[in-house]
Design a protein around this nucleic acid. Structure first.
Length: 476
RNA sequence: CGGGGUGUAGCGCAGUUGGCUAGCGCGCAUCGUUUGGGACGAUGAGGCCGCAGGUUCGAGUCCUGCCACCCCGACCA
């Protein structure tokens, strides 16, 4: 399939068609043959690898080790934690036949790995000296979702899941906060995306967790995307998987656990947050190619110049690609790389070779910068950093502009019926109230900001006493 | 799982009242001319008309059943 903008609607007209068209045309992904599955194509996977690298470095620096646990989970494992099984049962893929024979016990294709990991943890932990146990795995999981969407909600997705066990709740909580902060940093420094970090309400909490901390970002259509989560599991799993240790004082205690995950959904958020009518816009730090060089014509001097520039930029650590593709016109290539979101474009023709001066075009602003050959590497490095910062600022401004503090439910309804976005409002924390708000406005609580103090008020819906302001939004 | 929709070439579609060799645009291949904001010509390749039954001399078209996918809800990273 060619790179064509012809079938891409305007982002503002129909964001959902726009999104699918961009993901497909930019060759990030394609549909898999069975329901809800997705093929992540090389260009999309390259983005994932950059994300992995950024996150993996942080995880290792924290002292968490990578490992791998099996895809198949005995059905009985999943059933041990009541809330966990209730939360996941509706969306499980179950293997009932193996090697042509009906299995003694069904196998679950992991929707998440708490149970299979903690079964092992119970055998590996016996002393306070074994703690903390901190393991991460990069893997795939399967959740049989009702409605799927490329990257944002697929039957199978890739992620990392970190699982730790600690001697005290304080230590575990420190880990939960560490993880969400690391995620926020990756969103901020790599995705150039702002969002809110906070605690989930009871109804939105992970199945089996005592407390879930989330990072919520805002999409251009005013809907919220749960971008990653970090869970304080308390001792819920420790008790059912019997994960105990003998402490320094010889007493036997259950461990305190955490789990935290960051998935390929984030790529969907990236596309939505930064794309425009011309297609993808990639922040430089997550761009597989940061600069694309497009030769004008194929005469030898031009080709040589392209190679020289490419080598120079690559030696400065810049990810550069030269598009020598045959049979595509210059204009076609320009549009192709705009569609694919490459941050900087450099056209090289006889004119440039003659004057030794080059024009850099920025994908985000369409701004053109004229640069002499000798300072190209420096200029590109600087411009990539600027662009990264510009895109983050844009995202921050969007978040601020579309977060509204509201104290009347009429105003709340009005906003949700219009531009949507995040709404900050007092809420009594009664799930009945939460459900009614959802019914009337489609908005659910997204989180209660992690770094925000108690603020007594009246619930925006029922008027009863409330302790905190909560962030509401319509979920993706 | 509820509501709506669609299945004909890789993609987008036409083929409507049954009719003979199933077509168009884009894309793809080969050759040639082109290349500074989506170039053009020539020649080609590519179809179990979603699947299974049925009606008929004859089914892409009519009937029955099934399946798949998409959109909107509920579920969710």
């Amino acid at each position: 399939m060619a790179y064509t903008k012809e079938f891409i609607p305007k982002k503002s007209d129909n964001i959902s068609d726009w999104y699918t068209a961009v993901v497909m045309q930019a060759r990030l992904a394609d549909y898999g043959p069975s329901r809800g599955t997705m093929i992540i194509r090389p260009y999309g996977y390259a983005i994932w690898e950059l994300i992995q690298k950024a996150l993996d470095e942080k995880i290792k620096a924290k002292g968490v080790q990578n490992a791998y646990f099996p895809l198949f989970i005995p059905e009985s494992f999943l059933k041990r934690e009541k809330a966990h099984v209730e939360g996941f049962s509706p969306e499980l893929a179950v293997v009932t036949i193996g090697g042509g024979k009906k299995l003694e016990e069904n196998l679950i294709v992991r929707p998440t790995s708490e149970t299979i990991m903690y079964d092992a943890y119970s055998r590996w932990i016996s002393s306070w000296r074994d703690l903390p146990l901190a393991i991460n795995q990069w893997n795939n999981v399967v959740r049989w979702e009702m409605r799927t969407y490329l990257f944002l909600r697929t039957t199978e997705f890739l992620w990392q899941e970190g699982h730790t066990a600690h001697a005290t709740h304080e230590e575990a909580w420190e880990m939960v906060v560490w993880a969400i902060n690391a995620y926020e940093e990756v969103y901020r420094d790599y995705f150039a995306m702002a969002g809110y970090k906070g605690i989930k309400s009871d109804s939105e909490r992970f199945a089996g967790a005592g407390c879930t901390v989330t990072f919520e970002s805002l999409m251009p259509d005013g809907k919220a995307l749960q971008s990653c989560t970090s869970h304080d599991l308390g001792q819920n799993f420790a008790k059912v998987f019997d994960i105990k240790f003998q402490d320094k004082d010889s007493s036997v205690k259950y461990v305190w656990q955490t789990s935290w995950g960051f998935s390929t959904r984030s790529i969907g958020g990236l596309v939505l947050a930064h794309g425009d009518d011309n297609g993808l816009r990639l922040p430089p730090r997550l761009a597989p190619y940061q600069v694309v060089i497009i030769p004008v014509g194929a005469i030898e001097s031009v080709v040589n110049e392209c190679k020289a520039i490419s080598e120079m930029l690559a030696s400065s650590g810049i990810r550069v690609h030269t598009d020598f593709a045959d049979g595509e016109t210059l204009v076609f290539k320009i549009n192709k790389w705009e569609l694919r979101g490459v941050p900087l474009r450099l056209e090289v023709g006889e004119r440039e070779v003659l004057h030794k001066t080059f024009t850099l075009t920025c994908r985000d602003t369409s701004q053109k910068i004229s640069v002499p050959f000798t300072s190209l590497a420096k200029a590109v490095t600087a411009e990539l950093a600027d662009m990264q910062a510009r895109m983050l600022k844009e995202s921050e401004a969007f978040l601020v502009k579309n977060t509204r503090v509201v104290d009347s439910f009429n105003k709340f309804k009005e906003i949700m019926a219009g531009s949507r976005g995040f709404i900050k409002a007092s809420w009594c924390e009664n799930p009945v109230c939460e459900a009614k708000i959802k019914e009337e406005t489609k908005a659910t609580t997204r989180c209660r900001l992690l770094d925000e103090d108690e603020k007594a008020g009246k619930c925006v819906h029922c008027g009863k006493e409330s302790r905190y302001q909560w962030v509401f939004g319509q979920s993706y």
